[in-house]
Simulated assay, not measured.
Amino acid sequence: MEHYGPETYGELNADVYDEWHAGLDPTDAVRCLVELIEQGPGGPVLELAVGTGRVTIPLAAQGIDLRGIDASAAMVDRMRAKPGGDRIPVVLGDMADVDPGTDDQFGMVFVVFSTFFFLMTQDEQVRCFDNVAKRLLPGGRFVLECPVPDVARYQRNQSVDVHDVGLDHVRLVTVRHDPVGQRFDGHHVLIGTGGIRLAPVSMRYAWPTELDLMARLAGLELRHRWGGWHREPFRGEGMYVTVYEKPA
């Protein structure tokens, strides 16, 4: 979409993000991340795309030395308004740069809720992997939660789905699929008594094997791939968790 940038989604959706994603319970993600942090090298932890702090705040509450990056000031403001959110250092910037504003090396870098796909080109995704690898301590991990692309759901490379229906509103998600660019461009469309609200979103998806190649180019090794935060077997569908490791 024209004029869509790294900050667009957050700037336009921050006020409704938590409401629209209320079903994404971060408890399992926090538990698994804490276990991975304890198994890795000592050092601070960096979250890419902290958003409104749905994972950031409960993870920091576990005593983790956590830093963050996000492109949207509106999302970070939402995080800082929550209890504990104002104590987490966050830098505004493009997560592909992996620039926390310090020279720190990290025991772990992670990005959840499919947000890695908000990097809109393959070059940006490769650059993110490369910069993560440079920031990791030997033995450090890069953890990603991503969806397996479900391109079969699109007829004529488009879809309209109903996400919520109430007495005075309906929320639709409309998407155009670009199979060549591996892109989804769409809108959350909220229709209610007050009118119509559009919330744009664009993503550049990548297949698990493509992510593995990006990791290899950056000098990272595949350590784990699970079908979720309970470390269940990966079956090639739905959300999955991948752990890459920098050789010691």
Rank of each mutant, 00 (worst) to 15 (best):
R183H: 03
L213D: 09
V112E: 02
V243K: 04
T209E: 14
G192H: 11
V143L: 07
P44M: 03
Q125C: 09
R204M: 08
D178W: 05
Y154F: 15
A61V: 01
G53M: 03
I57F: 00
L144W: 01
V50Y: 07
N131E: 13
Y17L: 03
I37P: 04
E47A: 06
P247E: 11
G236T: 14
T242I: 13
P83F: 11
H3F: 10
R127C: 09
V180D: 13
G194V: 02
D168G: 15
Y9E: 00
E245W: 02
T27N: 00
T102L: 04
V243A: 04
A133D: 02
K246F: 06
F118K: 09
R156M: 10
V162F: 00
T193L: 15
H3Q: 11
E11P: 02
H3D: 12
R127N: 13
M214E: 03
D164P: 06
I64G: 01
V132F: 06
G186M: 00
N131M: 06
R176C: 06
G23E: 07
A218G: 08
L144H: 01
R231A: 13
G40N: 05
W226Y: 12
I37K: 14
R156A: 15
G236E: 13
T209L: 05
A22M: 08
P233Q: 10
Y240E: 07
A22R: 15
L59K: 01
P247F: 05
V151G: 00
G93C: 12
R183V: 00
E7D: 13
L33H: 06
H230S: 15
V16C: 11
A215W: 07
P149S: 04
D123V: 14
G53I: 01
E11H: 02
G101M: 10
R156C: 11
D94N: 15
V165H: 10
G23R: 02
R197A: 15
F106A: 12
Q158M: 13
V151M: 07
G227S: 11
L36R: 13
L137A: 06
V126E: 15
L92V: 08
A248C: 12
V165P: 10
I191Q: 12
P83W: 06
Q105W: 12
Q125N: 06
